[in-house]
Each structure stands twice: as C-alpha cells, then as structure tokens.
Design a protein around this nucleic acid. Structure first.
Lengths: 203, 203
DNA sequence: TTCTATTTTATAACAATGTTATGTATAAAC
DNA sequence: GTTTATACATAACATTGTTATAAAATAGAA
C-alpha cells in the first residue's frame, strides 16, 4: 500500500513542517514561529525541524529565500524599459511588500538581531539585486557603465525600500496604502526627472 | 556621611544600570543586552532593572529615545537652508548611523520582532521627524505647503535611510564607508535636481 | 527620634523557547 | 533478510525575561 510512492515518506514530513511554518508566518509573522507551534501545526514533534531543516535557522532561511524570490519576481522587466515600466515594477514591489509583509520584514532584519542568513539565503539576495540591475540595464541607455547601472539600481531600491521601512516604523500616518504608494511613485518620478536631466548634460 | 546628597541613593543604582547597559550596547549591540549581563556589569542583581526600568523594555526604550535624539540633532539646520546645508545634515545623519549603529538598528526595528517602543519612545521619533520637517521648511520656498514639506522630508529620509538599511543587509559591497556616503550624497543630489526642476515649472 | 509605609534589593523559582540527548521506529543500502 | 543510516517522540537541558519571596533600605509622617 505505497500510495504516492514518488516522494519518500520523510518528504511528507518536511513538507508538512514547511507548510505549517508558512501558515503561521503569513498570519502571525516571525513571532508566531516557535518550534513547538510549528510542530503542533504540522501534527509532529519538534525534532523534525532539526532533522529536515537543521533547526529554526533552516526555517527562517527558507522563508528568507522566498522573500527575495518575491522581490526578484517583482523587479523583472523586459528590455528595453521606459519610465512606465520602472514604475510598474515598483508598484509590484510595493504590492509584495504589503502582501508578504512578514517575508519583507524577515529579509530586512526585523526579526531577531541574532538571525544571520545562510550563504544560500544570501545568494537569493544577490539574485534579487541582479534583477534590479536588469531593470537598470533595461531603462538606461545602452552605453551606461556597470557602475551607472549599479548606482541607479541602488538609488531606486533605497528610495522605495526606505519608504517601506519608514512605514513599518511609525512614519506612515493614517493614510491609506494606496496614498502611501502614490507618495513613493511621486518620489521616484522626482528622482527619475533629476536622473534624466543629468543624462542630457554630459559632464 | 551623606556625600552627593542631591541624588537619592536609588538614583545611583539607576544610573549604574543605565551606564552598564549603554556600555554593553555600544560594544555588542542589542544581543549583548540581557538582564544578567547588565546586572553583572552594574555590580547589582537583575531586580533593579525591573524596579527602575520596569524590565528590559524600559532599557530598550531609553536607548531608542537616545537613538532618535541623535537623529534629531543631526537633522537640525538653521533657516534658511541651501542645498549645501541639506547635504551637511545628511552627512551628519550618516555619521550618526555609523557611529551609533546599535542605536540605529534599534530605532529601525532590527532588534526583536516583539519589541514595540513605548509611547514616550514614539514621541522621540516624532520629534526627530519634526526636525526633518524643519529641514524641509528651511530649504523649500516660503510658500511651500505643509504637504510639500512633509513629502520632501519623507523623500529625503527614505532615500538616505534606505541606503543605510541596504548597507546593513548585505547590499554594500566591500567599498569604504566614505565611498558609500558619496553614493548617498550623489543620489540625494539627483533627487534634489529633479525636485528643483519641478519647482521651476508649476503644473 | 521613632514609627510606619513604601521602595529597593538579593535570591530563587518560574515560563518560554531553541536545542540536545536518548532510545525506538522506519527507511535505505547491501 | 540483515545491517546501516535516518527520522521520530519524548524528556531534559541551557538561556533569557520575568515573577515571587523575604529581607533590607529608604522615605515620609508624627
């Protein structure tokens, strides 16, 4: 009676644990993620977290990777990109920051000062940044240097992430999310205006 | 033999505890702040943390207030302010973010997801933001609306804080602090160019 | 100064949470 | 089928914030 024989039974446990952790995380953030709660939600004991994920760190790393994968997805654009495409990517980014708030807080360290992402988790971050570089490449002129692309990507990311972070820490008044997003997009437009003015007058 | 009779004796203990906590915090960040370590550093038992500070939360709140007081100090400028003055304030902000990194991480939540600043601590944040509004007011034309000032302050703060936050989370390559700071200032200049262009063409 | 009330204090115990240890069960390899 | 490796439940451990208890110290009133 081996039903679903393609996946070893232990992978069922791994999936159960990850599914339980994700459910708790999406609903209650990282505070809801303690090994006893995860084990209970999965209908198992805590030891599986250690055998399958090497402990709580492994759970957090998995979620961290998911978080940056969302960022990666949002930032991807096709070449060439106009201003509207940049703004569309930023809207997607902001949507993810809202919809996956727990992930967002995890990837930007609002978790526990002791959490240090694993090497693999850090690779997910690099991949997400690479997609932002892709956005810069698609938007900037073909003769833009690597340094210019990098600077552009960092500028945009700083501005947008800065807004998200300030919102997380009490600097957003009671305005609606959509209004805050319009603020972000307006700020990015101001930046893009300044950037365009620089491009049109070579030093 | 009441030497230093102006300060009740219990205030000596309070000061000892705060001094011990600050010393640990500045050196080891929030991870170094556990009640047993603080008590040991102060040469007392842990109970004083509860009677004088109502627990660890009180210690964190006190340090959080210090953090935003540093921000407040950096952002203060005299009226009227030119671009150079804005850049000077940003440099001061970046210096503080570097020199008081533990404070900076505390005020932006890189501590423990369960830490929620007290009402008094949140007031320190509002005061710091008020000084950024003052910066906006000093820089913008006299007929700028409150909304314009607020937007400007948030834009600048988002951009600068965004850069600091990205640096905290692995997005700063191995470049020197001063080079990163030049990046921030360049980005702010791009933004200010865009902003100036908007000011000179009313919609 | 004495007495009373309040606050502070050291110490032990408790609660929560990540982790490890132990022995058993299951899965994989031969 | 036997042996080896992995997964598992459970209990115990280690750490850290907090509370409980009793005693000491301080502050305020008479």
């Amino acid at each position: 009676m081996e039903v679903n024989a393609r996946k070893p039974k232990s992978q069922h446990a791994r999936q159960k644990i990850l599914s339980a952790a994700s459910k708790l995380f999406l609903k209650g953030g990282v505070e809801a993620l303690n090994v006893r709660a995860i084990a209970k939600q999965a209908g198992l004991s805590t030891i599986g977290i250690y055998s399958h994920f090497q402990g709580k760190q492994g759970i957090l790393d998995t979620l961290y990777i998911e978080g940056f994968e969302h960022v990666h997805t949002a930032a991807r654009v096709a070449k060439p990109a106009q201003r509207e495409d940049v703004l569309t990517a930023i809207k997607a980014y902001l949507r993810i920051a809202e919809e996956y708030e727990a992930h967002y807080r995890l990837i930007f360290g609002e978790v526990d000062a002791a959490y240090v992402p694993s090497t693999q988790a850090q690779a997910a971050r690099e991949k997400a940044f690479a997609s932002l570089l892709g956005l810069a490449e698609a938007y900037l002129p073909n003769d833009a240097t690597a340094q210019e692309k990098r600077s552009f990507a960092l500028d945009i990311w700083s501005l947008v992430h800065g807004y998200v972070s300030l919102a997380h820490h009490g600097l957003r008044d009671d305005s609606q999310v959509s209004r805050w997003q319009r603020q972000v997009l307006r700020a990015v437009n101001v930046y893009l205006d300044g950037h365009a003015a620089q491009q049109s007058k070579p030093d």
